[in-house]
Amino acid sequence: MSQTHVVPTRVYYTIFAILMFCTYLTVQVAFLDLGALNTVAALAIAVFKAVLVVLFFMHVKYSTRLTWVVVIGGAFWLGILLALTMTDYLSRAWGTFG
């Protein structure tokens, strides 16, 4: 709040270019048959893009530690949702017959 960080526009253009390249990459990867890795690859690229947006466009990279705590906390809570839900999906078939 006390000081505002001025980011050179060059940074924004670079990030934008990277995001666009990643979009291109996603499309290209979609044409490859990676089996189970298809989803993994698409999600990995998407997460990478999201992190870039959060860090640079949302200025979290230049923000206070408390902001970092809030962002990491939010991501961690999403992790709880995904991880505990997956305990169900991954083990649902165990020990069942037929």
């Binding site: 709880i80 505990l84 305990t87 169900d88 999906y89 083990s91 649902r92 165990w94 020990g95």
Partner: peptide, 17 residues
Amino acid sequence: FLVWAHHMFVAGISVYA
């Protein structure tokens, strides 16, 4: 936040979960 599936024990979720 770590307990929600106790509402779902008979909904067909994994017994291990």
